[in-house]
Amino acid sequence: MSENVNVGRRQVLKGAGALAIGAAAGLVPAGKAFAARGNAPRWGFIVDLRRCTGCRSCTVACKAEYDVPLGAFRTAVYEEVQGKFPNAEKQFLPRLCNHCEGNQEDKIPPCVKNCPEYPKDRRVFNTADGKKIRYRGGATYKRPDGLILYDNDLCVGCGKCIEACPYGARTFNKRLIAGKDASKNGIAKCSLCQHRVDQGVAPACVNICPPKARIFGDLNDPGSEVSKLVKEFGLENKRNETTLLPAENTVPMLYYIDPKGSLTKLASAKKKFMGNEAWVDQIS
């Protein structure tokens, strides 16, 4: 499916001459270039809060990509008005799975760790140069390139991963029957559009974002835009300011460029994360 998306697009663009080729190149994020190098990439995602206009293109593009059922969101924008008139301001906070690295001790993200199927499942990740990286997972697993993915075939529908995620990034998919227990539902969560990324195409939300507030790429590639931004804004060194809920020690690979300190200001948003309340994208 994803392959065809990519090929189809290029086929049409081929005929358009130089102009089209330029554009086609623009469609392919840094990951493709990396894949040729062999090692697993380390996918990074940056939300630039200076750019987000709260337009919800990302939310709807994601709905459309997966036909996410009503009531579930794989990505959502949270907004909040703060301060007193006339100095009030409105903050936007786009949220998606943080694709956490896991704490320093075991490097296993909490959602993966808490899956009852972990670490039963043996998985293999094929790198572009043909190497195989072996790793373990459950119904939820972290791929060596950093993506936290979900395999419904292995899911018992217990919801422990939902409870384990401090961010509210997971919710039950009420249309999906859990693979191992027909009486339960499976999970909806962001996959960073693995089916597109594996073909060198940016995630749907990145592709659509009009003000380019969402940036995706390979942190192992020093030439990628994400690497440059990580360097420019010291995103990896100042995790307390650039990631959500640093105290949870989940080590997100989702960074925020946030010069105005919105993350710390969004007090009630934080509350919602803490309560494991699943996201709802709603403008009130």
């Binding site: 997966y66 036909d67 996410v68 059922p69 249309r175 999906l176 029957i177």
Partner: peptide
């Protein structure tokens, strides 16, 4: 319009 499908649509 009536039939449920796991993958939506």
């Amino acid at each position: 319009v009536h039939l449920p499908e796991e993958e939506g649509g």
